[in-house]
Write a protein that binds this DNA or RNA. Sequence first.
DNA 1: GCAAGGTC
Length: 911
Amino acid sequence: MAGGGGGGRIRALNVAEKPSVAKAVSQILSKNPSSGGLRVREGRSRYNKIFEFNYAIQNQHIQMSFTSVTGHLMELEFEDRYRKWHSCDPVDLYQAPVKKFVPQDKSDIQKTLEEEARMCQWLILWLDCDREGENIAFEVVEVCTRANRNLNIWRARFSALIDREIHYAVQHLIRPNQLFADAVDVRQEIDLRIGASFTRFQTMLLRDAFVLDFASDDQNVILSYGPCQFPTLGFVVERFWENQSHEPEEFWSINCTHNSAEGTATFNWMRGHLFDYTSATIIYEMCIEDPTATVTSVRQQEKLKYPPHPLSTIELEKRASRYFRMSSEQTMKVAEDLYQAGFISYPRTETDSFSERTDLHTIVQEQQEHPTWGSYAQRLLDPEAGLWRNPSGGGHDDKAHPPIHPTKFSAGEARWSQDHHRLYELVVRHYLACVSQPAISAETTVEIDIAGEQFSASGRVIIAVSYLICRFFNMIFAGCILCLIYLVRWLHMHMHLTLYVIISLGSSIVLDHRNYLDVYRFETWGGSVIPTYNDGQQVLVNHLSISLLRILFTPTTLTLDSGVTRPPPLLSEADLLSCMDKAGIGTDATMHDHIKKLLDRFYATKDSNMRFSPTTLGEALVMGYDDMGYELWKPYLRAMMESDMKAVSIGTKRKGEVLETCLQQMKACFVDARVNKAKLFEAMAVFFERSNRSDASGQHAIGDVVRKCGLCQESDMVLRKKPDGNFMVGCLGYPQCRNVVWLPGSVSEATVTTTICSSCTSGPVYMIQFKFRRLEIPPNYNVDHLGCIGGCDDILKQLIEICGTGFRNNSSVPGRGQGHTSSSNTAQQSNSRSTGAWQTTHSSSSYPFETPRGHNARYQEASVQNGEPSIPCTSCGAPCNLRTANTQANRGRKFYSCPAQGCNFFVYVTF
DNA sequence: GCAAGGTC
């Protein structure tokens, strides 16, 4: 291992992902007397203390300073000029430059790191050992190396805060893994670009267009889209649709019950149910005529009910929702409180198995004093009780945190709310259950025959198979049958007689072997205990049977009942968490956030039964995208991203390659979605009234991008429909850039397509599908036309010549193109005359150079000084000569037109 | 004002 710089003792800066880990690791490493003791001093951030001690790494004496960050130190954002919603077209967000920076609220931590780094030769990174942790590690590296370029950078790899593990990690330092960090960079950038583009798009498109009556301030409603929140909404909507589309169907079934002193057995018709009433009635009448039931089969099967796996975050959330009706958000809030106060372990973990090195018994020992479950903890620790069992894992390990378990005893704290009590109890009981034996029972299935129809009943007979002394106490209550039971047990053990012999005798006593169910009060066996039945075969071997008469019996009730098929239930919070977990939507630490977001954004509601339904808004959005044929509301996009991230993290794909491919696909999807925005409108219109605002604000709504503006070279040009029905393609850079292309007045419909013009090569120009009004165009022209505004489309040019454009003086309608210069009237009149304008500016063809841009001013100067000047094309830079029009409408007018193939620059000049 | 991921 390389040494540090300078003479004397090496000083190392250690950084953990959170304060608790910095403290725990420092405590472990400073236990040795040679550490000189553990000293603590304040950092600039009040949460992130600095621990100091000495430690020997590979026999080198190191002076350790140990501090922490609080999760990510940096944020990813668009550069400032893209931050405002109207600053650009949302589609630009797929290429807009992004920057990573330390936000204001983290600057204290940054300063601490910088100050400490300057005094150190080594940097040891103790971030969590997952991909996010590795990414945070590189954020720390960036900040620290800016302060001290000579740092020797090391990574400590550990999976639990256990002495041996930590000492091993520090003695076997490795280098940080750039690939892991890259994978997270990919996720961050994709999430930001997709989220921001779609959110801005659908918010600006729909907020003004509809009366969103669910919000008090509907102008500030945000219709967000996110790669996690939308699939979460998708789960809710999909189940809602299944539920709603269910058509109840009536059916009939024959039901039979039989009461005896031992209980009631409910027999189900083995045909299930019939949808045909006549058939059901005929069969029922046959049964009624001869209702004697014959037992045809009795089957016993031993069943083990295993305790749950150790507790992960998602399980904690699901169980708190099921047992206490707590929302996942509230659960995490309370869990965080309990963790902060030291009562439970770290609550954000995917791990559901304990490391072999965990001292499981000590955790139980601490709970022995508890008034409620203390005695169970004592039994667990008693080897004679045989209750202990090493917990079985669920196969998940995040390599950073153990399963959630109690870390400190409490019989309840004064300041705890009911939810604190409940959650602590759940964590403790769950832990005690995990280290317990499974419950053992038997399920009995009895089949009977009535008039040739088969019925069956299943029930539980809890049996004593443990042969343990503790069972003795149960047997006292069995009175005189006790001796018989021992006899039968003896027979069972030594003569291998069937278990059934025991059951048929013991069942009336119900010997109990609940094991973990004794402490895990949240779970039960369910079902009921049914009476004992024997079939003919068993009677022959069971000489001791007291149930002989039950070969035949008369049912207590035998009824023909009607019912209706039930729809699948709406999703509960536990169901929703399961769906998300299965599809890989979100992480253990964020799933509850995504669920809450659905509620906050008015996309879904939770009813009194804690089940989720979409709101009309949530349903409309999903419906809109679904109608477009997109599965943006399905989990596949996230799954694809996840698999790409995995590929980056193991080096099979490169960061840049994945970013480029994914963003390209998403951009195409975005552009396509925008072309099909009518589907969103239609879906919204099903549930919401159109707003009056939409007409007035239509001009401000972002349209579909046609091409990059050739004039300002910065913004996009988008297709718009003016309130008077005319179409234009204008620059989003307005008012700084006033570039505009007016389309023929005879256009009735225009839609930007995803087809890129192959003739116009100065950058992508999306073709527009036009529909012309039949009566306004000559008969030899087609009403449908796929056209291009890039300058290559002769048909469009001819129709503009013939029909004129939509550029008219309409001062009654406010908005772009009117009244923005003192000369606008002149301009409009002039342009109205010159119906053949192909491309001009907002300020008019009369004043083509009257724009704020310097280079245009130079053109004017050139044009005045020279009789026949050549100007550089504003689109591609090629020299453009002054030419004279000879069309019918504009004969004699001067114009500049770019000679470059595919370039659309064309402007009339009036001297 | 937008995402999702850390975390206080």
